[in-house]
């Protein structure tokens, strides 16, 4: 049985390579059918904002990539409710909101955690 992995993505989408790297880990794991979860936290929740325009900053379209998570077999996608609330965001349909104790329990459920 493969070890399960939780990836915590907590950087804004266009600020550097972290958001992209977190997603690449998740997609690669999904392609190999590993049990993978993805949690957006802190500025990472900005990745979930709809209708972003990657071309305006000459980047690859991370938001479009995120829509493919389901096809890569990644069904466990969460967003930190606290991070969203302090940023005036509501939870999009693509990520289930979790409160702080919920995140503690989520981390407990996985064998390994990577925070980027």
């Amino acid at each position: 049985m493969a070890k399960s992995l939780l990836v915590i993505s907590r950087q804004a989408p266009w600020s550097g390579p972290s958001a992209r790297e977190a997603l690449d880990i998740v997609l690669a794991g999904g392609a190999f059918d590993l049990p993978i979860g993805l949690l957006f936290m802190d500025d990472g929740v900005f990745q979930l904002t709809p209708h972003q325009d990657a071309k305006a900053v000459q980047q690859k379209d991370l938001s479009a990539n995120l829509q493919a998570l389901g096809l890569f077999g990644i069904d466990e996608v969460f967003a930190c409710a606290h991070s969203q609330a302090v940023r005036g965001l509501t939870s999009p349909a693509s990520a289930a909101p979790l409160d702080n104790p919920g995140i503690t329990r989520l981390i407990d459920r996985y064998d390994q955690v990577i925070t980027l």
């Binding site: 907590r10 936290m41 802190d42 606290h82 991070s83 702080n100 995140i103 503690t104 981390i107 407990d108």
Partner: peptide, 15 residues
């Protein structure tokens, strides 16, 4: 930096 704050928010009692 916000890392420590965020970490404290989600730290479990065994952590």
């Amino acid at each position: 930096d916000s890392r420590l704050d965020s970490c404290l928010r989600i730290c479990g009692s065994q952590d």
